[in-house]
Design a binder for these strands. Structure first.
Lengths: 232, 232
DNA sequence: ATCAGGACTTGATCAATATCAAGGACGTGA
DNA sequence: TCACGTCCTTGATATTGATCAAGTCCTGAT
């Protein structure tokens, strides 16, 4: 790994609170790889050979069954994926592909498992990351089972707006069909749901969104911390 | 805690591979509690004061939103719940209630967090448990997003039969309305789905189930390891 | 054994979502 | 600027699942 890369990797949230010497020893067995957009990084069912950490770009985590496919999440810089499979030395449950060109840190699974056993701080960082990921999926499962697609869209808009500082203005960060799959609906349903939000003063043109009546949208979405609050 | 209880608790899977002395020190701050059926053990949104481990009985893990409610899972002896909330010192994302009278080991959250920091073996056991739980939810999310309710039922029947040794004979271990909620459908839909399985030689009377044409049911259900295999 | 209440089923209907088929908008590269 | 392809939207229709309303069955308590 090049020296400037090394510098950058040390800053990753996954290594927060881990001794610098240990991080460096981990990074010695790791490497940074660039991938073009749309290539599959990880395939569902394959043995977990690497832990992946996104340095640059967007990665779509998805799963397939028969001729169907659904997006589990879309991750960005700083996020790692498939910790659980690596830790347990099992196969990946999900596939991953870049939505954009990406730069990815790849840590050999063996090194991660050793690291978990040897360095208590790294073990803690991994466990915290996994606990957060776990809670994320639980929230998503609740979102799916307890809400209609219109409600899911409304809540997604509010959450996304809050990420950007509640300005009422935001951009959808990927294709609408990816968003539809992420929200668990057909692309056509997303289109219609967007139209259904017009009475709530939601103005969506292309990827640009304006929320012109936050109160109205909130009364439809009814967000709750135990599903929607990322800090919860 | 009584001595015979202590004896029993040491055997729990959560303590596997953890030094006996450390297990005992953990158990000193813990206690075993009996609860009657149907009482709420844990309420969504409350701070995570305890890690729960089921000693006896069945516990339904569920979540609510507006006037809706859905079952996330049904757990039995040996299972623990809400590790992630305890580890992160956050609120519970789910509620829990006994479906039967239960005996439950309650470990104070503070002690668990200390244990995680102090004892590497316990930390590993917790992490493994959490990783398995994580993969369980991911599978369930895929199950929900990628399958119809009939497919979910068919796959549940096959999985449940395999748990019992693939004899083709099994009993539904709880009320059908709980199963319906667990599978993500209204109770009426479960009834109709059961009727829809008659051509596949599935015979359900009350809680007794007979699968008389495994092949036919398999061709409908199409189970895959990355959703249905508990060992995967 | 009987009765009451809960659990389950069945039928009718409605609402939500998926699918199929075109058509339109928009950005990109020639 | 034009042409192409991709993405998105819109309309029509089918399917799936939810809801409402009885009715039946089963069970557990008296």
């Amino acid at each position: 790994m090049r020296d400037e890369d090394l510098q950058e990797m040390r800053q990753l949230p996954l290594f927060e609170g881990v001794g610098a010497a240990y991080v460096d020893s981990l990074l010695r067995s790791a490497f940074v790889q660039r991938f073009p957009a749309h290539v599959e990084l990880v395939h569902e069912g394959d043995p977990a050979d690497f832990l992946y950490v996104i340095v640059q770009g967007q990665v779509e985590i998805y799963a397939s069954y028969r001729d169907r496919e659904t997006t589990i999440s879309v991750l960005g810089p700083g996020n790692s994926f498939i910790i659980a499979a690596v830790l347990l030395d099992r196969v990946y449950l999900k596939s991953a592909r870049g939505l954009t060109p990406t730069r990815i840190l790849m840590l050999p699974a063996e090194a991660v498992r050793e690291g978990f056993a040897e360095d208590a701080h790294f073990a803690r960082a991994l466990a915290v990351d996994m606990a957060l990921a776990y809670r994320g999926v639980v929230k998503e499962l609740k979102n799916q089972k307890l809400r209609s697609s219109l409600e899911r869209l409304a809540n997604w808009l509010i959450a996304e707006d809050e990420k950007g500082g509640s300005t009422g203005k935001l951009d959808i960060p990927y294709d609408k069909k990816v968003l539809a799959s992420r929200l668990g609906m057909a692309p056509e349903v997303l289109s219609r749901s967007i139209a259904a939000l017009i009475p709530y003063k939601v103005d969506i043109r292309g990827r640009h969104v304006q929320l012109n009546d936050r109160e109205a949208l909130l009364s439809l979405a009814r967000p709750v911390p135990t599903i929607d609050d990322p800090a919860c």
